[in-house]
């Protein structure tokens, strides 16, 4: 699955987009991300957006979903 990265998450991964192994839901994606990029665990929060909407850990991920890693936001 293709996953978009922003802000500090992009810096940690060193790329604006990654491809993950198949993951069933948001919780599994987070675990995969934490294993690949342990520095993500140090962040104040880590949200996942699915199709441009914040998703909870139980949400299933389907082929074709637009998935994004949202580190702590700091607009304004």
């Amino acid at each position: 699955m293709r996953v978009l990265l922003f802000g500090i998450a992009k810096d940690i991964a060193g790329t604006p987009a990654i491809t993950t192994t198949a993951v069933a839901d948001v919780a599994a994606l987070k675990e995969w991300l934490y294993t690949q990029y342990p520095a993500l665990r140090q962040l104040r929060s880590l949200m996942i957006a699915v199709n441009k909407v914040y998703a909870n850990d139980e949400q299933s991920l389907l082929p074709g979903d637009e998935i994004a890693v949202i580190p702590p936001v700091s607009g304004g």
């Binding site: 802000g7 500090i8 104040r44 702590p72 936001v73 700091s74």
Partner: peptide, 27 residues
Amino acid sequence: IDTLKQTVPIWKKEFFEDGAIWVAAHP
């Protein structure tokens, strides 16, 4: 403005004379 700062996916990197940080990224 309060809600924008909490929910809108925008990130701010602050550049100082001796380095830079992503604002609020770490506890």
